Simulated scan of single mutants.
Amino acid sequence: MNPGTLIVGPREHVVAIAEPDDTAAAELGPLLRDTARVVEPLCRPEQTYVRMWSHGRDMRKHLHIAVQPVTAEVRARYGGPRSEQLQARMLADGDEPDITEVEQFRGRARDLFQAITDSSTEDRS
């Protein structure tokens, strides 16, 4: 996946979107929204994809939800496809993002995520 992609996953071992209990399910929507609120201003994508992955080599493994900001530059690098065709091409190419770029993004994302969640907590008070 491209730099800026964040992965959301349950703490408990869950392999399907139908498995989380009511509490975990109620937390998932706001968490995905807040994750998109982090990647949108940091990456300025033309679209942010949200995709569920839960496969291993031969069976379901663990639920992961990718929140992937996709820019025109990312699409152009892979020949222009969108959606699952883009993700399939990225995975097939096996490109690894630059670790320095990833760590810089991680720091900015962590700070923004903290600000967003602090704001959400204040709004509920």
Rank of each mutant, 00 (worst) to 15 (best):
I17V: 15
A76G: 09
A16P: 00
H62V: 09
D22H: 06
G94R: 06
E19Y: 05
I65P: 03
L28Q: 03
E27M: 02
C43G: 00
V102Y: 07
H13Y: 04
V74E: 14
E27W: 02
W53G: 09
A115P: 03
G94H: 02
A109V: 04
A72D: 15
L32E: 02
S120E: 13
A115C: 08
Q104K: 14
R82P: 01
G80A: 04
T117G: 02
A92F: 10
R108W: 05
R60E: 10
R51G: 13
V38Q: 09
N2H: 13
T71K: 01
Q85N: 07
A18H: 08
R82I: 06
G107W: 07
T5F: 01
D34F: 12
A26Q: 10
T35R: 03
F105P: 02
P30I: 03
G56F: 13
Y49T: 01
F105Y: 15
N2C: 13
D98G: 11
G4C: 12
E103Y: 08
E27D: 10
E12M: 09
V50E: 01
T23E: 13
R33D: 08
I17D: 10
R37C: 00
Y78E: 10
V74F: 11
A36H: 03
Q87H: 11
T121D: 14
E46P: 01
P69K: 04
F113H: 12
R51F: 14
A36Q: 12
L42F: 10
Y49V: 01
Q104F: 12
L31M: 11
A109K: 05
P97V: 09
V15P: 00
D34T: 10
T5I: 01
Q85W: 05
R33Q: 15
M1H: 09
M1V: 10
D34M: 09
